[in-house]
Design a binder for these strands. Structure first.
Length: 199
DNA sequence: CAAGAGATCATCT
DNA sequence: GATGATCTCTTGA
């Protein structure tokens, strides 16, 4: 019933990947423990001209993974406190990634509650920093593969995708990129889903 | 409810 | 030395 997304999926155009990831399942394995969330919100970071992207300007130690080939995780620390999770997209040499911004808790909910120190379901993974905490995602997963047989973090799809409408808006928290790049409608979310991070 | 401040560190200048 | 693809808590209407 569930199938791990193949590497090919991530080679598609970033805006397409960002939209198609909605409704798919992010799976985290820690030993025997499995934590699963349904992806309800994403953002695209697209090309070296995107001033909102970490890949803007030149290649550095941190962003080099975004310049690499598709299907690798990019995990970074923000504000010295929280991690953010991205999946690298498109061909090698074209820097791009999709930020996974929010999940609907599906499996391993008690573990998520413990890791987050929260009990309300809507507080577990309704934001990029929150979901990394809930799935115990940190820098140890940076630059790892999402498409191999044995991995600790991957994405699955169900045969029946379910029915939902996709909403789009400007990306969150990137005003520093200037009005043009900050206003690109590259944030996608499942409409009327209560686990989306912002209205 | 909204607005504002503080937390805290890897990364880049 | 400055800052950020965030979150939580406090304050006040």
């Amino acid at each position: 019933m569930f199938k791990k997304l193949p590497r090919k999926f991530y080679y598609q155009p970033t805006l397409k990947v960002a939209q198609q990831l909605l409704g798919k399942y992010l799976v985290r394995r820690i030993g025997q423990q499995k934590i699963v969330g349904r992806i309800v919100e994403t953002e695209a970071y697209l090309g070296h001209q995107d001033r909102a992207s970490h890949a803007f300007g030149k290649i550095t130690a941190r962003n080099e993974i975004m310049f690499g080939s598709a299907g690798f995780w990019y995990v970074y620390l923000i504000y010295g406190i929280f991690y953010c999770l991205n999946i690298v997209t498109q061909r090698k040499g074209f820097p791009s990634a999709v930020l996974i911004r929010a999940l609907e808790p599906i499996e391993g909910i008690e573990t998520m509650k413990r890791l987050r120190k929260k009990s309300d379901l809507r507080d577990l993974s309704s934001g990029p920093g929150k979901l990394c905490q809930a799935l115990k995602i940190d820098r140890s997963l940076n630059k790892t593969k999402a498409f191999v047989r044995n991995c600790y973090l991957w994405i699955e799809e169900k045969k029946e995708a379910g029915d939902f409408k996709i909403g789009a808006s400007k990306r969150i928290g990137v005003d520093y990129a200037g009005p043009y790049w900050a206003s690109r409608p590259w944030r996608f979310y499942i409409k009327d889903n209560q686990f989306v991070s912002k209205k």
